[in-house]
Design a protein around this nucleic acid. Sequence first.
DNA 1: ACGATATGTTACTGACCGGTACGTTCGCGG
DNA 2: CCGCGAACGTACCGGTCAGTAACATATCGT
Lengths: 200, 200
Amino acid sequence: MTKGKTLPATRALLRTRPKAAERIRESARDLFYRQGIRAVGVDEIVNHAGVTKPSLYRSFPSKDELAADYLRHIGEEGLARFDAVVAAENPRAAFHAWLKDLQRKATRTDYRGCGATNAAVEYPERKHPARKVATDIKRDFRANLTALAAALGAHKPERLGDALLLLLEGVYASGQLFGPAGPARVLIEAADSLIEAHTA
Amino acid sequence: MTKGKTLPATRALLRTRPKAAERIRESARDLFYRQGIRAVGVDEIVNHAGVTKPSLYRSFPSKDELAADYLRHIGEEGLARFDAVVAAENPRAAFHAWLKDLQRKATRTDYRGCGATNAAVEYPERKHPARKVATDIKRDFRANLTALAAALGAHKPERLGDALLLLLEGVYASGQLFGPAGPARVLIEAADSLIEAHTA
DNA sequence: ACGATATGTTACTGACCGGTACGTTCGCGG
DNA sequence: CCGCGAACGTACCGGTCAGTAACATATCGT
């Protein structure tokens, strides 16, 4: 015990996420996205994950933080996919493919929009953990759209980026309001019109 | 008592909405919009209205139906305002004014978007009373936008209407995500671009 | 085989949820 | 001024919410 630290390296290595926590994460993602965060209780999450409540609270300090974690995952995934578009050899084509993919998803009957936007709707209070993550995601997304607009040769990248952001948020919202025959069908031609107007 | 009906006219007149119910309606509108429907309990509503819970349940069968009533009010108000735009002498100018007004509201720090869209986010289940009203509102709104697009001389009114719907839903969502400096600032020029592309 | 770490089990808390049985006050017509 | 019904309040219900305490067991590297 003379100033012994009990193997710090081992401790660091064993810090890999255990199995129960990961199951909880996956269940939370599924349930939070499909039903909304407020609509899902922690009991439902642990049942779906096949674990018990104490396991949840050993890995996450609260339901709010679990929701924030769920949103962080959304943010990382979504922003990474968009970074690839911006950095693509042909940004125009890459963006077009990205739009087609979004259009396909947004016209499915069970589409639920953007989890981050939905979370901001559910938690208007700005200091809420989930709300804060959602706001950060959208800030980054907006910056990415500006970068994309620049890569597309826009005269005013911020303004084209914002116009595209309006369009995309519109797809997120209206995709879950109208079904497969919703307004998302005009997404690509509308995006093209905006791009055209900013690059002519 | 010979077949006496006890003054039917008087009864009909006294059927005017009593005071408590109207206070409840107003409180519900305020709280539901600002905080979201799920976030507001019936106790908070009746406290805000200065009445008691039984008064609420005498005028409304359930919280869900009160939420549906709140949305019906939103729908009537919003659709009436938009009908005036479509039927205006100069639809283009009337729509422009409508957009400016929306832009002004959507860039306020406490903006909370469209109550109907928010309700659909909070209640994905399609058979929920609030969700049903929200869906109806959006269906009518979409039809109104198509009518507006026709009045603006669009070659394909449905497609311009849908494009504008995407833009507007985008304003609703991003207005509450970004503050006053949000992407709603490009709303009018984006709408003009879309209209231009469909009327050229 | 050991010790540490991860997980399960059970039961519980206090707060809050939507909703209701029942008593009380008010206003108006006779 | 009485009586009667409409409007409203008091007090409560069972259920569910997020979160926790205490203890038993499983798993794994060494």
